[in-house]
Design a protein around this nucleic acid. Structure first.
Lengths: 210, 210
DNA sequence: TTATTTATACCGACTAGTTGGTATAACATG
DNA sequence: CATGTTATACCAACTAGTCGGTATAAATAA
């Protein structure tokens, strides 16, 4: 056996991810990827049959890592509290913490893909959809439980409120880049948490009840 | 005066906007833009000295149009209600309406730029920042007025809550593309509106007050 | 133990086509 | 005719992708 090729493969993916976050994968040439990885054309095309396969492999890995975070985070908050609403609020806190000490160039590969038609194949789309859905599903289930105990202060579509979790992240990434303020991500997630808390506040007692 | 060149100029910008939304400007070649506009290289380079100037001109025009919508929408809701909170809630309703009958490929040029480093010049960034800020400023002012009348149900950073308006849009665009459901944009804005309403609900009366 | 085979992993020059951009001439219109 | 507008022809640099060949190291055979 020659030396382990999965190392090179991983290095290619890492380099590509960094470049994709910074300038978009569509605008990144293979030559740049190759240079950053420190390999040659030949090596690259040994591991990936073309740029598109690289794109899909990369987003799949991204989705897998997201899934790991999902599993870890939900498990964690479920041990920290038994109350479903508290679990969701804790999840937000955890999410904010993740972006407190901020990565170099915060952003989402999926978002970057979906504004670059070349990469936005149906296959890539589905990978992203599945990755996003599991978060919303979990949150929705929790909020529905919470709503049984404490009815929301106003009538709302809890599915939308759940999906908003990711809407916040995706939107905050963009504002963080536009304002050049990475900490906006954590702040937005915390604001979302506060709004959830307000939603599930015990309602104001009317004049007299029952 | 020879024939009017501003028509061609506008046609170039329109064609470019459509392509940029669909596949990203970085991945769009000048040849495609030229073909879609129905002109030639010579005409193009008469109007724009290079692709980058086109990019900046385009985002500036986008920001101007955004500004027009801002002026129109805020003026409208300010006539519809005298209550600042209601004005914000109405603005959300208006925003949702705008995306009810949905444009071809909903999305935000600014978001598309900020994931494509080539285009993301400091100049472009500032144009976007100004465009985004005016919305947040207006909403923040209104919410602060509202907070005087009715203190928020939980302590929140009203600046973040205001900026969330755009966070919702930007994030919803991405989810709309990922889920292939354009109506998610209107739904998210409405959910945001509902959360705001919950936040400014009169607080539950404690055992006894004053 | 040593030589040979075999499969994986990698190299770097090459190609066919595309890219953004230029030079220059033709055309339109006041 | 003068100016603003558009067309044609072209280029150098870069693009993704190919191809013949090499290095490595484990498995096998002598």
């Amino acid at each position: 056996m020659p030396r382990d090729g999965t190392i090179t493969r991983t290095r290619i993916l890492d380099a590509t991810l960094a470049l994709a976050m910074e300038k978009g994968l569509a605008a990144t040439s293979l030559d740049e990827i190759i240079a950053k990885t420190g390999i040659t054309k030949g090596a690259f095309f040994y591991h990936f049959k073309n740029k598109n396969e690289l794109a899909i492999t990369l987003v799949k890995r991204f989705a897998e890592q997201d899934h790991e975070i999902y599993k870890h985070a939900t498990a964690r908050v479920e041990t920290l509290s038994r109350d479903p609403l508290q679990q969701v609020l804790l999840l937000c806190g955890l999410g904010a913490e993740l972006f407190k000490e901020v990565p170099e160039n915060p952003g989402c590969l999926m978002a970057s893909y979906c504004y670059q038609g070349d990469l936005w194949s149906e296959e890539a789309r589905q990978v992203c959809e599945v990755a996003l859905k599991e978060w919303a599903d979990w949150i929705e289930a929790k909020l529905k439980q919470a709503a049984k105990k404490t009815p929301p202060a106003v009538p709302v579509d809890l599915r939308q409120v759940s999906e908003m979790f990711q809407v916040i992240f995706e939107g905050a990434f963009i504002l963080a880049r536009t304002y050049n303020q990475p900490d906006i991500i954590a702040r937005q997630v915390l604001a979302y948490r506060d709004l959830l808390e307000a939603l599930f506040r015990p309602a104001a007692k009317p004049k007299r009840s029952r």
